[in-house]
C-alpha cells in the first residue's frame, strides 16, 4: 500500500479468526489506521488482497463491506456532528441490509437499546457535537454496532480515557466477545490488550515485527523496548 509517496504497508499478512479478539500494536505511523482504512473500504490498496468469510473483498466500497458485516470505529470520533445522538445510531439501523427492520418502531427500539447499552440513553436528544470526549467514544461504539457487524474494527477505543473509563472499555470488550463478535482492535495501551486480546500483532514501519499470544509478545523485551515505549 503506497501512501503519499511512502510505502505505508508492505508484506503485511494477517489472519483474524472468528470469535477472536486480535490486538494490533505499533508506534505512530506504523500503518495501523491505514490497514483499518483498507479493511473498511475507505482506501484502496495498490497491491494485496482482503478476504472476508471466504470471499475476496478487495476494493469493495464501504457500504458493501458494511453490508457483509464489517463495522468500525474511528480513533478521532466522526459522528454526524449536527444530528442528534439518537439519529446517529438510527442511521446504521435504518440502512443496513442484514437484519433489516421494516417497522420504524422496531428501529427506534433498537436505537434506544444500543444507546442504553453504551450508557448514552440520557443524551439521546443532544447533538453529537455537544458530547464530551468519553461520550463520543461511546457513540463511536454504538454507531459501529448499529449495523450489527460480525467483525468489528476498533481504533483506539481506550485512548484518552481516564483509568476508570479504560476499565469500562475492558468490560465492553468482554461483552462484545460474549456476543460472538470477531474483534480486530488497535490499542495504544498494551495493558488493555493484555486483558482482552487472544492474539497480538505488532506493526512497525508497515511490516509485522512480532505476532503471538499477548504474554509472549508483551514479554519479549525487544517489543517492549522498541515499539511500545512507555505505557501511558
Amino acid at each position: 500500500m503506497a501512501f503519499g509517496g511512502l510505502l505505508a504497508l508492505r508484506g503485511v499478512d494477517i489472519a483474524v479468526e472468528e470469535h477472536q479478539v486480535v490486538g494490533l500494536l505499533g508506534p505512530n505511523g506504523s500503518g495501523k489506521t491505514t490497514l483499518f482504512n483498507i479493511l473498511s473500504g475507505l482506501l484502496r490498496p495498490t497491491a494485496g488482497e482482503v478476504w472476508f468469510a471466504g470471499c475476496r473483498v478487495t476494493n469493495l466500497a464501504p457500504w458493501r463491506l458494511s453490508g457483509l458485516g464489517i463495522g468500525r470505529t474511528f480513533q478521532i470520533a466522526r459522528p454526524f456532528a449536527h444530528s442528534t445522538v439518537f439519529d446517529n445510531v438510527l442511521v446504521g439501523i435504518t440502512f443496513r441490509s442484514r437484519h433489516h427492520y421494516r417497522r420504524v418502531l422496531d428501529r427506534r427500539r433498537e436505537a434506544e437499546r444500543l444507546l442504553a447499552m453504551v450508557g448514552l440513553a440520557p443524551k439521546a436528544s443532544a447533538r453529537a457535537n455537544e458530547l464530551s470526549l468519553g461520550e463520543r467514544k461511546r457513540l463511536e461504539l454504538a454507531m459501529a454496532l448499529s449495523t450489527r457487524p460480525t467483525v468489528l474494527l476498533l481504533d483506539e477505543l481506550a485512548s484518552g480515557l481516564s483509568p476508570k473509563g479504560r476499565e469500562e472499555v475492558i468490560r465492553f470488550y468482554g461483552r462484545l466477545k460474549e456476543r460472538g463478535l470477531t474483534i480486530f482492535a488497535i490499542e495504544h495501551s498494551f495493558r488493555v490488550l493484555a486483558h482482552v486480546a487472544d492474539r497480538l500483532v505488532v506493526l512497525d514501519q508497515g511490516t509485522i515485527v512480532a505476532e503471538g499470544r499477548p504474554a509472549q509478545v508483551l514479554g519479549s523485551p525487544r517489543v517492549m523496548q522498541a515499539y511500545l515505549g512507555e505505557d501511558e
Partner: peptide, 12 residues
C-alpha cells in the same frame, strides 16, 4: 455531515 461515515453505515 459525514459522507464516509454514512457509507460505512450502509448509506451509499
Amino acid at each position: 455531515e459525514e459522507e464516509e461515515r454514512a457509507s460505512l453505515l450502509g448509506v451509499r
